[in-house]
Amino acid sequence: MRVSRPRYVDDALFYHDGWRTGRYGPFQLNSVYQPIFCTSDTYGTPCGFEGLLRVKHEGKIISPLDFFPLVPQEDKFFIEWMCRAIHISNFHLVRQPGQLLFVNLDPTTFTNVAQAEYEIKFMVKRMEELGVNPQDFVCEVIEEKSQDDQVFANIIECFKSFGIKVAVDDYGVRFSDRNRIEKLSPDIVKLDGSWFKSMLETQRGKQQLKRTINGFGESDIMVIVEGVETKEQLDFVEAIGGCGVQGYLLGRPQGVAVQP
């Protein structure tokens, strides 16, 4: 699918119901935010929010999984930056001081470290203009089998040099293992929700989960468990302690795109 779009992301943004929104051809891109809690206060104030995308087409919400395959390769970088721009711009509508903003980032859109540094500088400048402290910003990256470990590690270090935290997403279902994670040295690892649930099905799996969470903690890497949907799942994570939790049991994504 080819659409006409402006050269710069800023020219594709507008306000809708007080929220910064993006336009890409016939699609409207909106921010929603899902809360993330610490196990020490799971029913209190969130420690952060993950910025998620909601896409509207002809007045109907469609899944990002259906939208992204429609975006041609030459526009993927543009859409990536549009998503980050609207999440950063709207964060003040949901945040309280000290809360973290988690935003997804595909590191394969960076062809080299120099390009990453240039784009990160631009992003930090935009955050500062909007009153978002880079130290309250977390980039969630997904490992791919084809990625070069050293290039990936250098990009992570580039983010950290600007005060931005880095989380490796979907641990357990892709190509990560503990040794590789510790070499990359991210600030946070997010356990995939489906993997977490499958591990809970056996005693051996539960023991592996405990070792994984505690092992990363010993390396000063925070763990966030995704996909927590039942009290039993939450009880298991709370019993281990020292990590974060995210899931429908504790809070669904909220924003203009999901309002009636």
Rank of each mutant, 00 (worst) to 15 (best):
T108D: 12
G247K: 10
K197P: 00
D75Y: 07
E129K: 06
G163H: 09
F77Y: 11
I240T: 12
H87T: 00
W195L: 10
I224F: 13
Y33L: 08
P186N: 09
P69M: 13
D10S: 06
S4C: 07
E80H: 11
S40E: 15
D136L: 04
K183G: 00
L29T: 02
T42I: 08
V71P: 11
Q207T: 11
V228E: 14
A114W: 03
A257E: 14
M1V: 01
K76V: 00
E50T: 12
I155Y: 07
I86W: 04
L101P: 04
N133A: 03
C243R: 08
Q147D: 02
S219Q: 15
T39H: 11
G59N: 09
S185C: 13
K76W: 05
G131E: 02
P260N: 05
L200M: 14
L249Y: 03
P97W: 03
G193V: 10
R20K: 08
W19V: 01
V138T: 03
L234T: 05
R126L: 04
V138L: 05
R54F: 13
M1K: 06
E144D: 01
N154D: 15
Y15K: 01
G44D: 15
Y248V: 04
N154I: 06
N104T: 07
F137E: 09
V124A: 08
E58Y: 11
F91I: 09
I88V: 14
F68H: 08
V223I: 15
G255K: 05
V228A: 08
G244I: 00
I221G: 01
G51E: 13
R54Q: 13
T212I: 15
T212E: 09
Y43P: 00
R204F: 08
I79P: 14
M222I: 11
K197A: 14
R54K: 14
L93R: 09
